[in-house]
């Protein structure tokens, strides 16, 4: 399947899930759709029938609240049945708002308290290095998540240990929960910052699957240091009326919102392969 089509399906499936639930973490789920499409559609070695295969590549969604987009991806890949997606956030569900490795097939690390998934990904990469394994570790952190001091400890560690089996994606969607990141917390340039720490850095359009594909290839060919791929993204990408809105982190859909969602879902269905 073409990566654009896979991205289309992930976006469609995620929106159907959120619309069914009537609320959820829409903005930050939409901004990572293309990256998930390229990772699970092309680069990651995973076996949906054997989710804990020791030969697999590992994925940590450090911004764990974007779980819905990852659940849609895993269901489309066949890790579990698509019907399960309708249980998102229900009582006793296996699909909680934030990712949980102990209850959801295909989730490699429990995340949600921001910053912690970054360290865990670094630890997985270090563990694979110790065991002379060539599995790759991918982690997505949010631009807001980089407020957390723990991230900088993890960066220092990753560079010191030359973890070239680690690729970090920054979902630079410019917004954190309370509003625009540059208004609230952080005006610095991520590329300069990660360069200063010693990362191999790339900045790309985070909604261009071909750019993501090339950047991952470059990361895999980089030796002696970890790579960061700064994804220039739009929070809420794909639903024009919701894009870049400061209130799209977690939305409870009004009747008007539902009309917009229905139109978007219809258009995405028409774009299906």
């Amino acid at each position: 399947m073409k990566l654009e089509h896979f991205a289309n399906d992930i976006r469609l499936t995620t929106l159907e899930m959120l619309k069914h639930k009537t609320f959820g973490h829409l903005g930050g789920s939409m901004s990572i759709v293309e990256t998930l499409s390229v990772l699970y559609g092309k680069h990651m070695r995973v076996d949906p029938q054997n989710p804990t295969d020791p030969l697999r590549d590992y994925f940590v969604l450090s911004k764990g609240h974007a779980g819905p987009a990852l659940y849609a991806t895993l269901a489309l890949k066949g890790f579990f049945d698509k019907s399960l997606l309708k249980t998102l956030n229900d009582d006793n569900t296996t699909l909680p708002s934030n990712c949980d490795m102990n209850i959801t097939k295909g989730i490699d690390m429990t995340t949600g308290s921001l910053g912690q998934g970054f360290s865990a990904a670094v630890g997985i990469a270090k563990g694979l290095q110790i065991q002379n394994k060539n599995n790759h570790v991918y982690v997505i952190v949010g631009d807001g998540e980089l407020n957390e001091g723990q991230c900088y400890e993890a960066m220092m560690f990753a560079v010191k240990h030359k973890l070239h089996n680690l690729t970090v994606f920054i979902d630079d969607n410019k917004l954190q929960l309370d509003g625009f990141r540059t208004d609230i917390s952080d005006t610095a340039d991520f590329k300069q910052r990660f360069n200063a720490f010693g990362f191999h850095t790339q900045t790309i359009n985070g909604h261009d699957v071909h750019a993501i594909d090339s950047a991952i290839n470059e990361a895999k060919n980089t030796k002696g240091k970890p790579t960061v791929i700064i994804l220039d993204t739009i929070k809420g990408k794909g639903i024009k009326a919701f894009e870049n809105r400061a209130d799209n982190h977690h939305m409870r859909f009004s009747d008007h919102d539902n009309t917009i969602l229905e139109e978007t879902i219809k258009a995405l269905k028409e774009g299906q392969s």
Partner: peptide, 11 residues
């Protein structure tokens, strides 16, 4: 966090 990740990798 690194300890947790090391354990995820089997150590």
């Amino acid at each position: 966090g690194v300890a947790a990740g090391l354990n995820v990798s089997g150590l």
